[in-house]
Design a protein around this nucleic acid. Sequence first.
DNA 1: TCTGGGGTCCTAGGACCC
DNA 2: TCTGGGGTCCTAGGACCC
Length: 422
Amino acid sequence: MQNAIALLDCNNFYASCERVFDASIKQKPLVVLSNNDGCVVARSEEAKQIGVTMGSPLFKVQSLLDEHDAEIFSSNYALYADMSSRVMNLLQNFTPEVEIYSIDEAFLSLEPRKNSLETLAHSIREKMYKWTGIPVSIGIAETKVLAKIANKRAKKAALKEQGVLNLYRSPKIENILKETNIEDVWGIGYRSSLKLKTNNIFNAWQLRETDNRFVRRLLTVVGARIALELRGVKCLPFEQFSAKKHSITCSRSFGQTVTDYNQIKEAVLYYLTRGCEKMRRNNLAAHAVTVFIGTDRFRPIPEPYSNSATYTSTYRADSNQEIQEWTIKTLEKIYKKGFEYRKAGIILSGLVPNENLTKRMFNDEQFQQRHKLMKAIDEINKRFGKDTVRFGSVKTEGCWKMKQTRKSRSYTTNWKEILSVN
DNA sequence: TCTGGGGTCCTAGGACCC
DNA sequence: TCTGGGGTCCTAGGACCC
């Protein structure tokens, strides 16, 4: 018998994280904002109820939030990442077959012993809440796409209290698929849903019943796989061991517009520093760096301008010094005077594990020395805090810095900000 | 005044090779 | 100069996800 797939999803994850450490805000509407405190990216149930929609800009919902005395937080990714790893670690106690899909979701592969699936799911849910303070929902079915649908249903009003729905070999599946709009199927986005609707396919059941060659022509193999998954045929592999990263991006919108080349350069080198840290944490080295800059999407001054360029090196590198040189050369190519820039970023790509790099024909010693130096710097910064040691060319403050005026403390990742109980 | 960031996969088309 | 078929690699752009 093939294994069942369960999808565990943390409810209102960022909002739930903020609540864990502050009992006084348990029943209030609560929202978490995107970078620069721009728009709403997470909402508590209470915030959903008063009508705050996902992605709305803060300035449009500010009065609504004030009216209901809502709590507003800047995003605190250090906190969310740490809470996420607690949740994922705890899951390993129930089954070794865990695929971490995103910061707040994981697939589990479970052996379908009789009546045990639901019991197990309930017990995971209870322990998760008790031990991490995070409420979760669990959907179970034959495939990932069906488990997603089960999970979404588990969050609906009738089942909300239980938080678990098992559709594995369930007779209910036909009705549920008929009630699932095509655009709510995982992997069917706006574009694909328009194409399907033009062809009179409006719900998940209709997609499942459509000739697969037709689906393939319409939506390529991506769509064909989704249709098969709806029939209970596993097409999306269960990936217990996460694939190596292919690229690392670090980009931000600035707190205000920036015109000066040197300021832009500071921002870009700051992002590069963050990107390189992440790369070395994953023991990777980069072949190329892409730099991109752009004016305000909504108010481009004097007119829209955005550009990007890529520098591809002969050798892979993992030291800031070397990649900084690539980055500056690339930025010089795309920076144009006279524009008010609002955003910049870098992408490190062509990533390979850094332990088996080809030896360099020239200067291999210098490369090795730089690698060791960077590792030492990373160690120090990990112990004593971000940017304790950094390159002189990298500034940590500037007019490009993000606005984050409502950030909660890093309760779990910084000793200075730990919760104290009186 | 105020609108996020970080990823993956697939396809088509061009360059180049045998 | 033209004819034919098959293959790889790279890149840009589209679509989707959380």
